[in-house]
């Protein structure tokens, strides 16, 4: 997944300072903006891991963030200017920095933001495969291609792919041979008639 960091602050010194601190440690694209409104230009982004470090002032409306928030994994870090009453923070913002924040603290914060968006396998509520998903899994385990599976089950290839995506999300298993083992462990294929070692 692609990663981006946005630094939004009216002060050029602050923007460039934060940029310099982060560039040492993170091999990520960093975009510096003067105003929050300029984020509009990036609302087309999808499927990215984004961290937005923004000056928390009361001046702007937040409406244009929601598209970005909806199509990407976004984490927010608010920058509070000294001697200023902080504006009400965005509800999903957990981290704050000020001019007193140490460089290492900021780096830790960004690392923690990445950690949270990464690696944690999605845990959907129901892990149980549907009957149709089991049908597809059986055929995957027997080594059939998407095209053959589509023909056998009278569904489109697109639907087969979508089922396979759901199977992998639910089981946490990606490789075909891993799915075959899963199918055998769950007695979805009859190992009496087939030698399982040939399948894996």
């Amino acid at each position: 997944m692609n990663r981006k960091i946005f630094i939004i602050h009216s002060s050029e010194i602050v923007r460039k300072g934060i940029n310099a601190i982060l560039r040492i440690y993170f091999n990520t694209e960093i975009v510096m903006l003067e105003k929050k409104e300029e984020l509009k230009g990036f609302c087309e982004l999808t499927g990215q891991e984004i961290i937005i470090i923004y000056e928390n002032t009361a001046d702007s409306t937040n409406t244009n963030f929601f598209q970005l928030q909806g199509n990407n994994q976004v984490k927010w870090i608010a920058f509070l200017n000294d001697h200023e009453e902080p504006a009400q923070a965005l509800p999903f913002c957990k981290f704050y920095i000020t001019t007193k924040t140490q460089a290492s603290q900021l780096q830790k914060m960004v690392s923690r933001c990445w950690d949270k968006t990464r690696r944690h396998p999605k845990t959907s509520d129901s892990e149980e495969l549907t009957t149709r998903e089991k049908d597809v899994l059986k055929l995957v385990a027997l080594g059939h291609s998407n095209k053959v599976i589509a023909e056998k089950l009278f569904i489109s290839i697109h639907t087969v792919i979508s089922h396979r995506k759901n199977i992998t999300e639910k089981t946490g298993i990606k490789s075909i041979s891993g799915l075959t083992v899963y199918a055998i462990l769950n007695n979805l294929i009859d190992t009496e008639t087939i030698n399982p070692e040939d399948l894996i």
């Binding site: 089981t171 946490g172 298993i173 490789s175 891993g178 083992v181 899963y182 769950n186």
Partner: peptide, 19 residues
């Protein structure tokens, strides 16, 4: 990635599905 995938699958098979 293919090799990494299998290693992760191996862990999951044991953690989640093996009796």
């Amino acid at each position: 990635s293919n090799v990494d995938e299998k290693l992760n699958d191996l862990k999951n098979l044991i953690i989640k599905y093996l009796t």
